[in-house]
């Protein structure tokens, strides 16, 4: 009887080891794909926020160009990762998936913006930054703890900037928020 119970305990332990090893393998593979994308968005945050701070009249153009470039890079890196992982994802398929995700995010953010009464560029910037941080934290639950750490860092930077650096918010978000993404991207990449 006892030997049966010991065998079952050993089997449970072995299955847990398997689950842990496979979880880590999947997380590392995700970090490989996400690292360059997070890095690129960090550079875009840095440039677009800095430009918004020094040249507010160029903010719309800076963000539109930045978002278009970021979406393009994200789709390209996503397609490269798919090719590396033999997932068979074609470039048009990656483009469609990327556009669908970007569209959903834009519609969702606009709906939230309308619901909470966002009226200034700075408020929109704060809302988007919090949305990104939340998305990373949620992603962390299923894709790997490092995404959660990154989300907490971006969220904390956004809240701190909003509370104590409102006059320099864009500059703060560019260097601290964008910097966190750049460093986070390298951290994921080098796993």
């Amino acid at each position: 009887m006892n030997s049966n119970r010991d065998a079952a305990l050993d089997a449970k332990r072995a299955l847990k080891d398997i689950e842990a090893a496979q979880g880590r393998t999947n997380a590392f593979a995700f970090y490989d794909s996400a690292g360059p994308i997070v890095f690129v968005w960090g550079v875009i945050w840095l440039l677009a926020n800095t430009l918004t701070y020094f040249k507010p009249q160029a903010a719309d153009m800076a963000w539109l160009t930045g978002i278009a470039a970021g979406a393009g890079f994200s789709m390209f890196f996503g397609w490269l990762a798919g090719r590396r992982n033999n997932s068979g994802s074609s470039l048009p398929k990656s483009l469609l998936a990327g556009l669908a995700i970007a569209g959903t995010i834009l519609i969702g953010l606009n709906a939230i913006g309308l619901a909470v009464g966002v009226s200034t560029q700075q408020q929109a910037n704060g809302l988007i930054s919090i949305a990104v941080a939340t998305a990373y934290i949620l992603m962390g639950f299923s894709r790997g703890a490092r995404m959660m750490v990154l989300g907490v860092a971006v969220g904390a930077a956004t809240v701190a900037g909003w509370l104590w650096m409102r006059d320099w918010f864009e500059l703060w978000m560019g260097f601290v928020g964008g910097g966190a993404l750049i460093l986070g991207g390298v951290w994921l990449w080098r796993t």
Binding site: A14, D17, I18, A20, A21, Q22, R24, T25, N26, A29, R84, N85, N86, S87
Partner: peptide
Amino acid sequence: HQTLRLKILAALRAAPEGARL
């Protein structure tokens, strides 16, 4: 059955088919 070999195989099984770790 050996613990480390089991972990190695588990990791390789989770990798995309044909991919090397």
